[in-house]
Amino acid sequence: MISFFAGLISGTIMYGAPLLYCTLGEVIGQRAGMVNLGLEGIMLVGAAAGFTVAAGTGNMWLGVLLAALAGAALNLVYAFLVVNRQANQLASGLTVMFLGTGLSAMIGRSYIGSGISGLARYQIPGVSAFSWVRSTMFSYDLLVYLVVPAAVFAWWGLFRTKWGLHLRVVGEDPSAAFAAGLKIPALQYQAQLANGFLAGLAGAHLSLAVARAWTEGMIGGRGFIAIALVIFSKWHPLRAIAGALLFGGSVTLQLQLQARGSSISPFLLNMIPYVLTLGVLMIWGGVRRFAAPAALGRVYSGEE
């Protein structure tokens, strides 16, 4: 029983962390008025590029860095279409999704089945006294330890800096932002670069620390779940932590039940995260419109 709960807690944290990185990026993007359905593709490219570099060079952190940069670079496609060409946001996002799905399959192709050491785990100091609980409960890689500080940093950036204020004005009322002389395109590009960077990082965390493998399509809809979690979090970085833990918990519960030889079909268990996400959205749905950035999804041409 203790090992069951220890596994549940450590799994919740491990599966929650990459989702939180991705959700934080999308919170920043949506605060600037843009919905990006391309996250799935960006995470896939991050996972494939990170794994390829890590397996090729043996340097895990080089993989993480390049995955994040590749994610930011890929998201320039979205930023270009939405900011410079005023294209439809959903279609632009799906362009990135298609692109990332295809590119990741090409990048990762020769690395299917390769093994890597994975990101190094570090024990939380001072808990070795509790050696009766499974040690994994207190041992994570650096990206896990950094994810909550990252959420606090995103909150600070969005709500305690001039940059964040400007970004939110763009998302709430672009014509006011224009009248105030803000550089709207620059702010939107910055938001999408951050979004792509974090989604790429999240993908690499999945392939380098969580799965320690690359398989085609391994993101499995997490990019879309992140968008759902943004709604759940009411566009707030700190509330996103709760959303990511909830989702991470549902994935882990499902895996733990399978590992324990539960008689429930794995197909039904695999549905839990998606059904839970839908359920949460439904419950939250009624209030969301009061929290969403007012200009979310609109095309701003700068002439209004």
């Binding site: 060409r85 298609f98 295809g102």
Partner: peptide, 26 residues
Amino acid sequence: QGVPFAAINVLMAIILFIVLMKPNLR
């Protein structure tokens, strides 16, 4: 040629990109 099937997604993305990029096409 050993190109993964999923690579056709890249071609589809390119088509979408061109359409979205050119306002007169859009």
